[in-house]
Design a protein around this nucleic acid. Structure first.
Lengths: 251, 251
DNA sequence: CGGTGGCTTGAAGACACTCAAGGTCTGTGG
DNA sequence: CCACAGACCTTGAGTGTCTTCAAGCCACCG
């Protein structure tokens, strides 16, 4: 119990690095005074880099901390009773990992690095108490979870009744938005996950993903080279994702 | 604005009724002392019954309160840019309504009663501060949201790659569990939503839902009479929902 | 240089959707 | 109490989409 194995106990070193993280505006709930910042840094600690395929935590492990991605990316997958793995999430820099473990005090899925990745750890215990900073942080999490809840619900329910091309287009639109929010180009990015991962996530066969990518390329919507993706016709892709020019409602 | 129109300002009357609610163990985070109970009751207020098709709140309305269902049931649906309505949730007695409005301070979907329904209102403002009771309540919500988040994610991602019969079987298993948790029979229940609603929720055409119900009946898995449902072969339905005897993984 | 894993492409079949029509239930007004 | 209207539900036939199965390609790495 207590704490999962791969966390550094080096809180001091941590603080120095978190300050230069470049993501602090995303890690911290609001703009903080310098003094508050000092105190806030005490909530987090730096973990050593994860290499590709390394596990951050295992499904079922006791929930102790959550994490904020500093660089790289990860995927979360849950082993189903039937033995299959279902990918439930991808994580990009600045995003919270492990929020869904709070409920049952266990991580409901395993999270592994898709490439070399660094994360900040936030021990959940440190979020207790009534210090204004901690209160602020909890509040932020509250909002984040609520938003996440609805977003997820919408997106996926939407996908349920959509054709594969709409699903994939939606996926890229979502990714594009996430990169843009991070300050990266929304038109050109690299995704570390395999076609198989994308297919698993969207509920499509690998072959379907591959075929669609070819078609998107042919339609001049996107250009693909390995795991580098470029959106050529943003509006076109958006229209496709919105479902225009495709199947209609039936409710 | 400010507060949605149909809320009673009668906090006193409310308290008397919430005490005899029978759901208090679900409404309140933990077992509370009598004194705490007194204080906690001050957090909620009773709203007048909603009749069928009446709107609890509209999509986009400012978030002020959430609600706990006392009796009856509701559905939440979001209007998509394309103009379709997507049902994102059904609510049964004892369940929280409106949690997903916290994030953006607006309700992300409209909630309407599926039948005559009563709810308790919990103004969000009353959850601020550091009173131990309020802290407890927030903590409870935190956990509830986290669980919800993961549950939703799993369930729906799962459905993405499932055939229609597995989707529908999963739906009934989930409903069954929800009724059981409330102390009702897990084998026999009435669902107030139409076939169309179920189809919309699961991403299936009405016709498919109807055909599957006929098939389930023929296979002696369930018996259906209008909106009354009876699970005849619980294990069989569970096996179907788990995906055994059906399509396999490909990841 | 051969092996492995990931990716792409082709062909055949299953599944769920659309369209269409008939049947049933519910609520309302005479 | 009955008749009617409208919504809801069921069933059938045909079609398109996505999956599965199969094979080949490509890049990376021993």
């Amino acid at each position: 119990m207590t704490i999962h194995s791969r966390v550094l106990p080096l809180a001091r070193q941590t603080q120095a690095r978190c300050q230069s993280c470049g993501l602090s505006s995303l890690c911290t709930p609001l703009t903080l005074t310098f003094q508050e910042m000092e105190q806030f840094r005490s909530l987090t600690r730096q973990a050593p880099p994860l290499h590709k395929r390394q596990v951050l935590f295992q499904q079922g492990a006791p929930f102790t901390s959550f994490f904020i991605v500093r660089s790289g990316s990860l995927k979360q997958s849950s082993r189903l009773p039937s033995g299959e793995d279902q990918i439930t999430q991808f994580f990009l820099p600045g995003e919270w990992v492990g929020l869904d473990g709070i409920g049952d005090q266990r991580y409901p899925g395993s999270v592994v690095a898709l490439e070399t990745t660094t994360v900040c750890e936030v021990p959940f215990q440190r979020l207790e108490g009534d210090h204004p900073l901690v209160v602020e942080m909890r509040n932020h999490l509250f909002h984040a979870m609520s938003r996440e809840m609805h977003h997820e619900r919408m997106l996926v329910r939407l996908l349920l009744r959509r054709t594969s091309d709409v699903r994939l287009a939606s996926f890229f639109m979502a990714m594009s938005a996430r990169f843009q929010r991070r300050g990266y180009s929304p038109y050109c990015f690299r995704l570390a996950m395999s076609r198989g991962d994308i297919g698993n996530y969207l509920g499509l066969a690998v072959e379907t993903v591959s075929r669609l990518l070819s078609r998107f390329q042919q339609q001049q919507l996107m250009a693909t080279r390995g795991r580098e993706f470029q959106i050529l016709d943003f509006e076109g892709l958006r229209r496709l994702a919105e479902g225009e020019g495709r199947q209609a409602a039936h409710g």
